[in-house]
Design a protein around this nucleic acid. Structure first.
Length: 230
DNA sequence: CCCTGATTCGC
DNA sequence: GCGAATCAGG
């Protein structure tokens, strides 16, 4: 298998979308996890939570003589300024539940299609203003797919209303709908909750409040998460 | 053990 | 450029 433009694009988007190299490799097919990582680095994209690269302490002058026979005298001098965009953590954002704010070309006055008139059991309010909910509280509130048309124009009509891999940007929700590789696989495409990779609705699913032990349920829907069902 | 990404190096 | 082998942390 060779790295065609499409395969590279898939790799790129999935990599940026947070998928692991294994998942990407499995999705692309015909390549190994190492191939994906190698290609990703060659493409220039890299970083992302690496278990190995993250730390850098207490190794400077600890055991210089532990390994005398250094098999790989690699000369390294790459100061990586650990760039942490600090995703959804402690963000003391003013909870303006109905102030979408910023680059919303066309979202007049209907940010959340589900105001939930009865206000069931919201656990907490996320930093971006989305509502955190328990894993089990997702059943009723997703009735109609809100008409979204913030995409300028589509060259191909059969994917006219779908956000494809190539349509992802910082402005649209990257929540995957379906599985990559399937014919109708696409992404949510809604306007993002400012500062997050997902829209408000999917932020509520991505960042769930912890439930007390015993009440927790195992299967939370994760993007690219579970085993493929083929 | 499993997983992860990073890096090296022969091709 | 490619990716298996290897490394190294979780």
């Amino acid at each position: 298998m060779s790295w065609t433009d499409e395969r590279i694009a898939t790799l790129q988007k999935m990599w940026e979308g947070g998928s692991t190299a294994s998942q990407i490799a499995e999705e692309l097919g015909g390549v190994s996890r190492n191939a994906v990582i190698g290609k990703a680095h060659r493409l220039g994209l890299k970083s992302r939570p690496s278990p190995v690269k993250a730390n850098d302490k207490k190794k400077a002058a600890k055991k210089p003589a532990a390994k005398a026979a250094a098999p790989k005298p690699a000369a390294k001098a790459a100061p990586k300024p650990a760039a942490k965009p600090a995703p959804p953590k402690a963000a003391p954002a003013p909870v303006n539940a109905d102030a979408p704010a910023t680059g919303n070309d066309s979202a007049p006055s209907q940010p959340v299609p589900n105001p939930a008139p009865n206000l069931p059991k919201i656990v907490s309010v996320g930093p971006g203003g989305f509502l955190r909910q328990g894993p089990g509280d997702q059943q009723p509130p997703i009735p109609p797919a809100p008409p979204r048309r913030l995409v300028p124009a589509k060259p191909s009509p059969d994917i006219a209303d779908k956000t494809s891999l190539l349509d992802l940007s910082d402005k649209v929700c990257r929540w995957p709908m379906g599985h990559p590789g399937e014919p109708d696989f696409h992404f949510c495409g809604q306007s993002v909750n400012p500062g997050f990779p997902y829209c408000v609705e999917h932020c509520g699913r991505a960042y769930q409040a912890q439930l007390p032990r015993g009440v927790r349920r195992p299967p939370p829907p994760l993007p690219f998460g579970g085993p493929r069902v083929r």
